[in-house]
Design a protein around this nucleic acid. Sequence first.
RNA 1: GCCCCCAUCGUCUAAGUGGUUAGGACACGGGCCUUUCAAGCCCGCGGUCGGGGUUCAAGUCCCCGUGGGGGCACCA
Length: 512
Amino acid sequence: MEKSAPSTPARTRFAPSPTGWLHIGGARTALFSFLLARQTGGQFILRIEDTDRTRYVPESEADIMEGLRWLGIEWDEGPDKGGPYGPYRQSERKALYRKYAELLVEKGHAFYCFCSKERLERLRRRARAEGRPFRYDGHCRRIPPEEARRRVEAGEPHVIRFKAPREGSITVVDRIRGPITVQNRDIDDFILLKSDGYPTYHLAVVVDDHLMDVTHVMRGEEWLSTFPLHVHLYRAFGWPEPEWIHLSLFLKPTGKGKISKRDSEWLKEKGYAGVFVHDLREAGYLPEAVVNWIALMGWSYDDRTEFFTLEDLIEKFSLDRLKPAPAAVNFDKLNHFNGLHIRALPPEELARRLVPFFHKAGYPQVTEQDLLPIVPLIQERIHTLTDGPELAGFFFEEDITHTPEAFETFLVKHKKVKLDLPTAYQALQVVYQRLEQVDPWTPENLEATLRALSEELGLKSRKLFSAVRVAVTGRGVSPPLFETMALLGKERTLRWMKKGLETLAQMVATEG
RNA sequence: GCCCCCAUCGUCUAAGUGGUUAGGACACGGGCCUUUCAAGCCCGCGGUCGGGGUUCAAGUCCCCGUGGGGGCACCA
């Protein structure tokens, strides 16, 4: 195994707030963080940022963990498995944040604020009316420390705000974009500790990333605008900064606006799989394909390689090849990758993964063993696991129905077939008789028999085989004919074909 | 409105520090193969947002526009 330049182990983290299901944007952030940690022999942490009680969705934490594990993104430390830097749920670290917020007050970098929501709302309205962005007016900055402390101890409701510098500028460095300079006057006196005693994201993320020895902070670009504030916080605490990596956002398939949880509904209505990881899983996408797909949005390896396994990515991922521009998600490409990964699966493995999809599709008795002989017939024909039962479910039917439309569409009208009903009927009657004689009932014998018949009847194999296909399976699209018939068995094949012939006979009769 | 980020085919992207006909993938169109559908193979369509500079040379560097995105909460 060749080695690249030795890099120090990175400690990274994925820090979702449990307010909703794991979506593809979060999955990519987690993936890249995970890749960096694995690649450098470091640790990947899962931390739950549940500091907003009002938006908390109890099931989302489990959904996030399930989604990550399904994708193969396993964490080394987290709320369910502990670790030396725990606890890993911010609600369980509550006391910590107050301590650090007060440390900042002592150092003169933060102050107690007693402003009411009403006053703040007034300020906000005025700012809006005057066409300027809302900034805290510094009202409580003027309260003498002793007085503030007294009021706090007396139990007066309050928050702790950061005392943002009013002059000068700060230059912060994003790994993808390089240096970014902003004027300090554009940075607000952000609230660090809310009146309910919980920290805001700004405080919690800084405190925890520092306490947990996080070396690389990867997050979405939506944090870019508060990034300078976070750097100010590190400096105020006197802590060394981690590397900052703001991943560009995912845009809707239309390229208009960032993709969000709210888009899930209409995307599904339009036939897209959806934005949540569990949606993709249910829709029959392989975790391998999802990983491959999201990895290639905002990152690339070279000018031609596109197929990657998780292992490949661990080896080849590089921060230097991250892109700052946002990417519109392309579900066609996901389908493509899914096909690729389905075909790359060992047949037994594909059979195993197909089982639940057959169960869900109404074939609850199907086992992996049952699927083993079928998989070779469908592996290169399906794009999602849900296509499996669609294409091969009939192997588990005792009986089927033939529709006149099937004969119409796939024999008469099909541009490659163009076979009229009377001819088809006549030929199929001969076929039926000849099939009764076939023994043993193998694909080879069936093919030999039907090819001979095609010659004998003066009917192109394409026409004859299509007629047989529709007569036997009731459908115009199926796995390869001879294998299909062999798998169906002689009894079912002949019985179904007889039914097909009856339907066809009626059609011929009424057509007159 | 203010602040910040971004800008190569319809979409995802390549073209390390400026130097061939701007390459690949998805999608789309056509063809080959063929037993339907796929898969595979071949061909085609299609792009450096606009304008100024710098330079012998600009997709690449600078400026201005334009367009897109994000943020402007006691949400993350």
